[in-house]
Design a protein around this nucleic acid. Structure first.
Lengths: 343, 343
DNA sequence: GTGAGACGGGTAAGCGCTTTCCAATGGAGG
DNA sequence: CCTCCATTGGAAAGCGCTTACCCGTCTCAC
């Protein structure tokens, strides 16, 4: 009887060294970078042995031995949401270039889980933790704060997108300015009354965008006639818009959804109420996810270079001097047919 | 001078044991599940010490010691694509429930990288590798095959979505049947001529859907008047459709995009050519991503329970008997306004 | 010719855990 | 009261890898 088909056991460095007829140390030096040089003859023997055995270094063992791991952990609220999907793509691209592995953790939409998730992640002794889900206000909730401190104490870096919550490194996102610029552009198109659809109060990204929009719109002489709170989801947007319509929305009003996803939900509600999007009720969003240009009419929004933001977050943690310097590309207002020029 | 602010070093199990006044073994037994019982008095002391130190087990060390890791690796082509995003969400949800960590690796759209990616992943000695990017045909390319074998040899499981490529475990996706059902439903709506927009020949998912559609459509008396090949992207869909329009598309034709993303690209091209979607040129896709219902007109498609597929893939690797049994929910044809009833 | 370095291979001491043994303790059964 | 066994804490041997050290061998300056 031969041995069991499963779990034949992966070849170890020891196997490679033995097959190559060299010491463990030499094999290690050849295969996993070291400052020490190894004579070509040995180098070749080791490489050949590794190749023939299909050796692949055990990352866990390497991490324990070295005391540092090569993983970057990305914390998102929902990986199916295109906002996070694009950020994740940027992180993944950059991580791959830097030889890091990315693990992604989904914290969901409710606040408490975030600290739990980071605690779990902490076990990996991650090189970097990227907090993409900036639900926090100006400071981190104490639970989370404690976990973040622990990660940093253990030698890891923490980057928070869009919120400068020490001790995490901040990657600012121009939510406020972007929304203000959008508001100004829309005021210039003749809109004077706007309804705001936000996520729950206290969620930083939402608050910043709402405040920015209000600031820009009012400065341009517009009036905010209503603010509704929900969540960063399509369904919340639809629901809030339905409620707004029930309460009555004057023709010529503008609706600003705190994200494209929310705005798209709102568009569905507008359509369902047999009102037309654009001339009757205008709608604008934020992010410029791909869907924004595919809906009809196209959704006016603010373009955020999401993938770039993800990539940048990682480079920031890597202390890449070439990149941590320059500011992120300015958010760009993208006007489409969902907010036509008013007569 | 106090010690450096960074890298204070995470508390180890040894620290906990010492603080609790027990042995390493006891601390280990209390904190990280074991069959051995520990007296309550000891248990409490250890728990208290761990809590006060903010201890979090070093997963790498645990993995080396145990010889198995708790990571599941998901290989996707593009995490920003909603198809993969939803699958990832399902995997993440299920992994979290099972106490596993998910690492995601992006293999991109070109075939060679997949083997490389799996080789990288192999270093983590993953508990499970889920291959969501079923670019393979009926068998795995030799390079990939070798890596998959290595993962399995090392005691890991490999699940391939939509392709039964031994020695990986297959999670079948009814691409062919779904497409056939869609084709029949559309033929029933009066369509007689269809143009197919696929990804490159040899890509399993695309081929299956194309073949299924053709089978269903022709059986119902329809005729396939053209097949164009591109890729699983919006831009490819748009480009192919543009080319098709250049060559002339008769009014009343139906266009089937091999995925919703492709179909949505095609819709953009149709609109750009000043043709109307629906009565003039009908369009259908596959997957039922959220955007499909938000475009106008709504996109007819086949609903795939993507998140469920992701969750199922993981449960399959976990040998969850309750779930590996029943077949996946049937793909469901969803008819919307992009394919109106023909007079 | 000799001594001082460089060079480069090997030995072995960890890294932070798990787990196998071993030993001490305390009941139960006779 | 003694034996036997079940129970449970601790000592120590790993897990697969890295890396300080050690130690021959060359090379070269003097």
């Amino acid at each position: 009887m031969t041995d069991s088909p499963t779990a034949r056991r992966a070849p170890t460095l020891d196997d490679v060294a033995r097959q190559a007829g060299v010491s463990l140390a030499t094999a290690s030096r050849v295969l996993n970078g070291s400052t020490r040089r190894v004579a070509d003859a040995y180098r070749d023997k080791v490489a050949a042995a590794a190749e023939s055995l299909g050796y692949s270094a055990n990352l866990s063992a390497q991490a324990t031995a070295r005391g540092t791991s090569a993983v970057v952990s990305l914390v998102v609220a929902d990986i199916a949401d295109p906002y996070f999907g694009q950020i994740a793509a940027g992180v993944a691209r950059e991580a791959s270039a830097a030889g890091l592995h990315v693990t992604i953790a989904v914290a969901g939409r409710d606040a408490e889980r975030e600290a739990d998730v980071v605690r779990m992640l902490r076990g990996q002794r991650p090189h970097t933790v990227i907090l993409a889900t900036s639900r926090a206000g100006d400071r981190l909730p104490p639970e989370l704060r404690r976990e973040v401190d622990a990660v940093i104490d253990a030698g890891g870096r923490v980057v928070a997108l869009g919120a400068d919550v020490a001790p995490a490194t901040a990657l600012p996102i121009a939510n406020g300015e972007g929304a203000a610029a959008l508001a100004r552009a829309l005021a210039r198109r003749g809109y004077a009354r706007a309804i705001l659809l936000g996520a729950a109060a206290g969620i930083r990204t939402s608050d910043d965008r709402l405040d920015g929009f209000r600031r820009g719109f009012e400065a341009a002489g517009g009036e905010i006639v209503g603010v509704r709170r929900g969540a960063f989801t399509r369904d919340a947007g639809e629901e809030q818009m339905r409620a707004a319509l029930r309460d009555g929305v004057a023709a010529g009003s503008l609706v600003f959804g705190v994200s494209d996803v929310v705005a798209i939900g709102a568009m569905a509600a507008v359509r369902a109420a047999n009102r037309t999007i654009g001339a009757d009720i205008a709608v604008a969003g934020f992010d410029d996810i791909p869907t924004a240009r595919d809906v009809t009419p196209g959704l006016s929004t603010v373009r955020l270079p999401l993938e770039e933001i993800g990539a940048r977050a990682l480079r920031l943690a890597l202390d890449d001097p070439s990149e941590s310097a320059g500011p992120l590309r300015e958010p760009e207002v993208v006007l489409r047919a969902s907010t036509p020029e008013r007569a």
